[in-house]
Simulated scan of single mutants.
Amino acid sequence: MNRKDQSGSTLFIVVVSLLGIGLLASGGFGFWAYSGRQDYKDNVDLKVAAAVKIAKEDQAVELTKKFEDLAKSPYKTYQSPATAGSVTFTYPKTWSAYVDETNASQPINGYFHPNQVPGTNSGTSYALRVEMLGSDYSQIIKSYESLVKKGDLIASPYIPPKMVGVPNAQLGTRFDGLISQNKSGSVVILKVRDKTLKIYTEATDFMADFNNIVLPSLVYIP
């Protein structure tokens, strides 16, 4: 056999091999595609049922959230005695309150929480705490400095929206993060006359209520 015949035979073998590989590949792809279609056909009811279940669960969560938000209104209002700066704010009607106003050195010591207020020794992270303290504003701010330096807290200037432009109302400070051991939330500290107002939430679960209901309604006589 001459070289020309050998070259022709070799070319023929290569072409046949490539065609064979192509047929195998297309056959494999066809089998994969068929299997996928068959799987979808066989399990379409299960897939639809699963999708419907997920949609219903998502809808239930959304409806529950809307119901909870509606249940919070109309809001309740707290107002302290005039001697304590007439501190006033609104809070969800689904919350209960326990406020001690009998201590001269701490004219306001309030606890607010959904349903009923747990005992002070229960270890509960309260939805809202309100304190009017006899301590100087700068001393209270200083007590948070170590947490800020560690990065556990973020400090930022703050004044309640309704107090902007009010004569003698001073800029306060807001702390966000780990406000105490095992409690994450937000603390707002404001100077009120010769005392200091400390209003805060001890749990991130109540942050929306704190930011959207309590703080926007907060007023006092500076």
Score class of each variant (00 low, 15 high):
S80T: 03
V99H: 04
R174P: 01
D100P: 04
G8V: 07
A55H: 10
T77S: 09
T102P: 00
Q139H: 12
V15G: 06
N115Q: 15
S80Q: 05
K93N: 15
Q6T: 12
T124I: 08
I13G: 00
P114M: 11
K198F: 01
N103K: 10
V117M: 10
I159L: 05
R174N: 01
N121H: 07
L133T: 05
Y40V: 14
G185P: 01
I21M: 11
I21A: 11
I21H: 07
G36A: 12
S80N: 05
T10Q: 14
S17Q: 08
A97G: 08
R37M: 13
P114E: 06
S186Q: 13
A51Y: 11
P216C: 00
A169H: 01
V130D: 00
Q170C: 03
G22M: 04
V48S: 13
E145K: 14
P216R: 00
S186R: 05
D176E: 10
K72Q: 15
T64Q: 15
S35D: 15
Y158N: 01
V166T: 06
K183P: 07
T10P: 01
N212I: 03
A49C: 05
M1W: 11
E145Q: 15
N168Y: 02
K191H: 06
A203G: 10
V99P: 05
F175V: 00
S138Q: 13
V187W: 03
K198R: 11
Q106S: 11
K53C: 06
Q106H: 06
V15A: 10
A49Y: 08
V61H: 11
E145N: 15
D5P: 04
P74N: 13
L218N: 02
L24G: 03
P216W: 02
G165D: 02
M207L: 13
E68G: 05
Q6P: 04
L190E: 00
A51W: 09
S86N: 15
E131A: 05
M163V: 01
K47T: 13
Y34L: 14
Y158L: 00
Y144A: 06
A127L: 05
G22W: 03
S143M: 09
L23I: 09
L128K: 00
S186H: 05
L128R: 01
P114D: 09
K198I: 04
S96N: 12
S122D: 08
A25T: 07
M163T: 01
Y98V: 10
N211L: 14
G28E: 07
G123D: 10
I141G: 00
P107C: 05
I154H: 12
L153A: 00
L178M: 10
I189W: 00
